[in-house]
Design a protein around this nucleic acid. Structure first.
Length: 232
DNA sequence: GCGACAG
DNA sequence: ATCTTGTCGC
């Protein structure tokens, strides 16, 4: 009964019959990048021990997760091709913003379901790269992305895309998803981006949620639209 | 007209 | 993504 729905959904999104030449390229790129995707914990830091939890034995790792990044884009209401991408870094424990940068750009690639990364990733990768080039001490150890990761028709959403290209642990956080009208309370959709397990993805998001959306993404959202406003 | 698929 | 007022409550 439900198999019919699953099958048609999958077919519709993975078929190459009705794709433009551009989208054919994008499909190949996604497929290629997906081969580099890591969906397990792969980082050298550890989460701060929970309050009622004993320190884990055998964890020789002394580095604690401290710098958590968040990225988001906001768009101009007048000209939808004008956007502001923002990158923020928060202290994982205090949730205070310790770094902020943003960039106003003109986007030439339209939004197409399943290909969000080709529209939004370039700006965000630039902001990350700028920080890395400067060897900034607050460069994020984990990045939360406003968009899905594995939760994607081909299992390679924006969070995966950014994670692989930046070689950074990422978590995807979606605010809408397919067949979203089931849950009653507006849920968020957490999925693995790159170099994190689902358990870690969920745990880190929970630990940074003061409100519905985790604080790193919320701050990136607030600051990107704020800057867009002051620009015109 | 219906259904609807991140941002 | 963006368009949008007031309202309730801490």
């Amino acid at each position: 009964m439900n198999d019919d729905k699953e099958a048609t959904f999958s077919e519709r999104n993975c078929s190459t019959e009705f794709q433009s030449p551009q989208q054919m390229d994008w499909l190949r790129i996604q497929d290629s990048l997906k081969r580099q995707l890591i969906t397990e914990d792969d980082f050298k830091w550890r989460l701060p021990p929970k309050i009622n939890e004993r320190e884990k034995e055998g964890s020789n790792c002394e580095i604690l997760l401290k710098y958590v990044g968040g990225v988001d884009l906001s768009f101009s209401k007048e000209d939808s091709s004008i956007a502001c991408g923002a990158l923020v870094v928060l202290d994982f424990q205090t949730l205070k913003v310790v770094y902020e940068d943003s960039s106003i750009v003109r986007l030439h690639i339209p939004y197409l379901p399943g290909f969000l990364a080709f529209r939004e990733a370039p700006v965000l990768l630039e902001l990350l790269d700028k920080m890395k080039k400067n060897a900034h001490p607050f460069y994020p150890q984990l990045l939360m992305v406003d968009g899905n990761g594995l939760l994607h028709p081909r299992g390679f959403g924006l969070a995966c895309h950014i994670g692989v290209l930046a070689d950074l642990p990422t978590v995807g956080v979606g605010k809408n998803a397919i067949q979203s009208s089931q849950g009653s309370l507006k849920p968020i959709f957490i999925s693995v981006g790159h170099r994190v397990s689902l358990a870690t993805a969920i745990e880190t998001v929970k630990m940074t949620c003061r409100f519905r959306v985790p604080e790193p993404i919320r701050q990136a959202d607030i600051r990107s639209r704020e800057r867009l406003r002051n620009h015109q």
